[in-house]
Structure formats: C-alpha cells, structure tokens
C-alpha cells in the first residue's frame, strides 16, 4: 500500500503514528488555545515542554545509561539560578557577587542560557565524577545527597533571597523576539525540545550511545571489552546536566522566579516520575510523562482539594498495568531497551 510505504513497515507503524500525532498536537497548541478561547493553555503547554526537556535529559542517563540520578533538581535549579542571578544584577545594576571585577550581569539569552548549560555541566562533572564510583541504589542516594547539599546552601545564602528565592523582573532577551509573548515563548521551548530530542536520538544511536546502553545491560562485559566505561558514563552524565541546566534557564523565564524549591528532593522525584510514567529508554516517553503528570495535577486540582487521593492510586495502577510506561502502552510493545 502506498501509505505504508511512506510510514514504513508495520513494526514501527504505531511508533510513527504516535510521533506524528504528538508533533501535530505540539504545533497545534496555540491554535487550539485560540479555538477554545483558553489562552492560558499555551502557558501550561510551555511548562510541560520545559519539564519534558529536563525529563528527556534524565532519561538519557536513566533509560539508556542505567544511572538513576535522584538529584536532577540540582541541575535544573542551577540553570534557573544562573538566569535569576544575572538578571538580578542587571536589574539592580550591581556587580555579580562571588566574581572578581564588576560585571553587572546581563539579560541576553545568548549569554545567560549557554552559561546556564556550562555551569550545570560543570556541576554534573563534579557530582558525576564522585557519584559514579558507586552504582545502583547507592548511586541514587549519593546524587540525592549532593542535590540536598545544594538545596540547603541556596536556602541559607541571603544574597540571592535564600528560601524566598529571587524574582525575575525581566525575562531573557532574544533579538527580534518578545519572550513575554506566550506564543513566542512556547515556540522557543518547542524548538529547543525538538532540537534536544533530535540530538539525543542521534547520540543514543551512535557508537557512544551503544556503549552507554551496553553499560546499562552489562557493565562488566563492556569493561572486559576494553571500553572506558567510567569516562563514557561521566560524559553522558555531564551532557544530561547541561540539558537540565537549559531547561532550568527556560523555567526561570517561564515562572519569572527562582527558588531553592527547584533543588529539593521532591522535585527530583517528580522529574524521575515523569520519566518512569512516560516510559524510560524512549525519548518520546518522558515528553508524554511530563504532559500526563502536569495535566493530571492541573485537572485533578481543579476538581477537588483532595486530588492527591486520586493521583496516588493512579500512579500505582500505571506501574502495575502499564509495564513499559505510557509510551509502551501507546505503541503496544516494549521500548527501545525492552
């Protein structure tokens, strides 16, 4: 049939349909928002995209590398704080603290966002270098410990608001674009997410990605084959931290606020839940997970103040009956790593 020629063989038929449908929906969000006269939909959708970005970054190491980071909020938070702090100084006209010289920060996205990625990457390098000595549950807990350290650190430094956090009085600036416009902001998030998904899909299919997946399945064998497993894993960890940092920069702009809450372990837990819920080891899964969790929150919280009594059992049921996450349910088979 002609159609099947376009979409390819049956095995990946549903995958393609799901992907296409997903893309269609993502691009149609602003349209739908206008159609239903619910302009706010665009804001929620932006938030979903941003969380999808950080969930994808976690999935890269969790689903493909088998590294369960329970401290991903640290990178998200650091990325957000970079934007927050630079904007703060630029707005107040004061020199950036903890830095020599008298640089007064900036609101230019082309400085802020890459810097957020670099610093988050550096943080990931330090945390990863120490944490990757352990594995399994020990790795989960040591990454959590580092994130908690950062959380308590941010709470107690008064320069940047401590627990009160920092208001962001101006969103980042990109030439020719107005980030205050909900739709422009949405499309920037979307483009960045797609870009990231494309890069990640290239990465996981590359030799580097194969080694990473090999480590997840059998680390000892990979070591025996002579691969520098530690270095590969660390590289993936840093990459993941950088993407999370970018998501943080976007989130800071979206919320117009940064606070240590981003680094708290419950936030890291939520990110992890998005990945598992959507289906780990598939790059689309985390996007689905982010959308589902945030929409469930949104809808249930609107229905009753006791919404958690429904959300909780729903999560349990999903685990029990959708073994490969929602994505697995949709495409009807195991995910890439299944």
């Amino acid at each position: 049939m002609f159609l099947s020629k376009i979409i390819g063989s049956d095995a990946s038929f549903r995958t393609k349909i799901v992907t296409l449908l997903g893309l269609l929906i993502l691009f149609a969000v602003p349209l739908l928002a206008n159609l239903f006269n619910e302009p706010f939909l665009v804001d929620i959708a932006s938030r979903i995209l941003i969380y999808a970005l950080v969930a994808v970054s976690l999935d890269l190491i969790l689903g493909y590398g088998g590294m369960v980071s329970f401290g991903h909020g640290a990178f998200l938070g650091l990325g957000a704080y970079v934007v927050g702090i630079l904007t703060h100084h630029s707005y107040e006209g004061t020199a950036v603290a903890f830095l020599p010289g008298d640089w007064q920060g900036t609101t230019q996205a082309f400085v802020q966002w890459p810097l957020a990625m670099i610093l988050s990457g550096l943080l990931a390098l330090i945390i990863g270098a120490l944490s990757l000595r352990t594995s399994g549950v020990y790795f989960i807990m040591i990454t959590l410990a580092f994130a908690q350290m950062l959380y308590f650190f941010m709470i107690s430094i008064p320069t940047y608001g401590g627990e009160d956090g920092l208001n962001i009085w101006e969103r980042s600036e990109i030439p020719l674009l107005d980030l205050y416009d909900a739709k422009s902001f949405y499309f920037i998030c979307l483009v960045l997410l797609l870009l990231c998904l494309w890069c990640c899909s290239r990465i996981v299919k590359s030799r580097f990605g194969m080694v990473l997946r090999g480590c997840r399945q059998n680390e000892v064998r990979m070591k025996a084959l002579g691969y520098p497993v530690y270095r590969y894993k660390l590289m993936a960890f840093v990459l993941s931290g950088m993407i999370a940092g970018l998501a943080g920069a976007l989130l800071a702009n979206h919320t117009e606020f940064v606070g240590p809450g981003l680094m708290h372990w419950t936030r890291s837990g939520e990110i992890m839940i998005m990945v598992i819920l959507g289906g780990m080891g598939s790059l689309i899964g985390p996007v689905l997970g982010s959308a589902t969790l945030l929409m469930m929150e949104e809808v249930l919280a609107g229905l009753t103040e006791h919404w958690m009594i429904f959300l909780g059992p729903m999560l349990v049921l999903i685990v029990l009956f959708a073994r490969k996450g929602l994505y697995g349910l949709l495409i009807g088979k195991g995910t890439d790593n299944g």
Partner: peptide
C-alpha cells in the same frame, strides 16, 4: 524504578 513510582503514589 517501578517500585519508586508505585510507592510514591502510595505516599500521596
């Protein structure tokens, strides 16, 4: 990870 998700649901 499945255990984490399910038992987190139970906490809620």
């Amino acid at each position: 990870l499945d255990q984490v998700l399910a038992t987190f649901g139970m906490i809620l």
